[in-house]
Design a protein around this nucleic acid. Structure first.
Lengths: 247, 247
DNA sequence: GAAAGGCTTCGGCAATGGCCGAAGTATTCC
DNA sequence: GGAATACTTCGGCCATTGCCGAAGCCTTTC
């Protein structure tokens, strides 16, 4: 007999099992930069042949974790929704060491690629790493935002500050990131490398978008890491007093 | 050669794989009621023999997902931290059907046990299901809270309301759920059965605690579902105008 | 139209890992 | 002290499933 509760429990396990395979996990991690990649690129990211990758991608798409779009002879795969990205980030956060302060030190921090990731990276559609945590810290210190592990909100002061940077927060009057009262929340996202919250949600997305379009940061191909351009360094240091966050 | 980035990716995949096994997934789901269970109880929940469960529990504990406490000849296992509970809830949310509005209809809703779960259940340390969503809706309508997918906050009005119910929100001046400014946030938690947010975080925990200690709701043994007592029905319907949320 | 590239399906191999029976330790109860 | 209970370790069986080579489909390019 199959209990009705088993149905949902089984979907729960299946989803996790899908993520739990090393090859698929690498594909999903590669897609955490928020962009769509071809099957071949994902095969390379996972370290498997195209035919093996094809099977994995079919499974992930079938389960609703990925969305696929044909374009010529390419097929572009991306995370199906921000909810999926959020889920993956949450798992990464737990995988990176469990509760902060616990004795677990599984994630060794070595190597240049790793260092670049810890310094600054994208987390689906917002920024993460030392850079993002530093930005959140300065904004908190100055009263631009209020942030806790349970939630966050931008103040009037912060709205003005961000608009001065070119972030338009009054574009739409309602959206997933604002309450019925129009208040703009910023979702805290626990940074897996820094173990402290940074800014996600609509606010984090807007901030990341501005940084990219203005050329303050640039994506490093084939990884989630980003570099801060010389211009970006000047602008962001002036705006956020980054101190040694980029060293 | 093992790339340094692979280290973290591997921990990511291992964590997901740990959750992905059906037996372990059932154990974790059973622990989502927030309480500690013995190895035997978890074996029963997973549908495996004690010796098999023992191996699974050792893995989960070793990975930092569970914490264990000896007590006499029993060993009580619980989720290691709220972060783990949050991760599991996020996976359940995605597993229950991907993005809201997507064509996925994998989770059939049948059977009495399932119906009870959808009506009211605990989600680690707060309430979920139709009951919790209805409570959040009423509080939003009345201006007690502001809630969006990105965050939430309790208003002065809401603080008074909850204190009238016996929830003391001014107990400590700082904590994980409040910003440096003392503002009390309530984390939104996407309800996997209702596909709408309900109240989590410190606020959700406090609310759930009051309901349990006052005897308004009671846990159903062996499941995450809770029943609303006759007294609770009276009190909660008066306070929250639950309408048909409990039918 | 032929060639090339991107992607998928099929088939068989191999290894990972979950499962239980049996046996061993630790703790409580009588 | 002996029986009972809770839990763990060990060893071998078996199913699942990830992997790649080969071959086929579809689209673009020349």
């Amino acid at each position: 007999m199959i209990s009705p509760v088993m149905v949902t429990t089984s979907a729960f396990a299946e989803t996790a099992a899908l993520i739990g395979d090393p090859a698929r996990a690498n594909m999903l991690a590669a897609l955490m930069n928020g962009r769509a990649l071809t099957a071949k690129e994902l095969a390379e990211a996972a370290g498997v042949t195209p035919q093996t990758a094809s099977g994995h991608l079919a499974q992930l798409t079938g389960a609703g974790l990925l969305a696929m779009a044909r374009q010529g002879r390419h097929r572009y795969h991306r995370l199906a929704s921000p909810a999926v990205a959020h889920m993956l980030e949450t798992i990464m956060s737990v995988a990176a060491g469990g509760a902060p302060g616990s004795g677990r030190t599984k994630s060794l921090r070595v190597g240049p690629r790793d260092a670049a990731l810890r310094r600054a990276r994208t987390c689906y559609n917002h920024l993460a790493g030392r850079l993002a945590v530093a930005m959140a810290d300065r904004m908190t210190e100055r009263g631009h935002i209020e942030l806790s592990l349970d939630g966050g909100v931008i103040t009037e002061h912060g709205t003005n500050f961000l608009q001065g940077l070119g972030v338009n927060l009054k574009a739409d009057t309602a959206g997933p990131g604002r309450s019925a009262g129009g208040r703009v929340f910023c979702r805290p996202c626990l940074d897996w490398s820094e173990r402290r919250p940074h800014i996600a949600g609509v606010l984090g997305t807007a901030l990341c978008t501005v940084c990219l379009t203005q050329g303050w940061i640039r994506r490093i191909e084939g990884t989630r890491a980003v570099t801060v351009t010389p211009m970006g360094r000047t602008v962001l240091d002036k705006a956020f007093d980054l101190r040694d966050a980029l060293d």
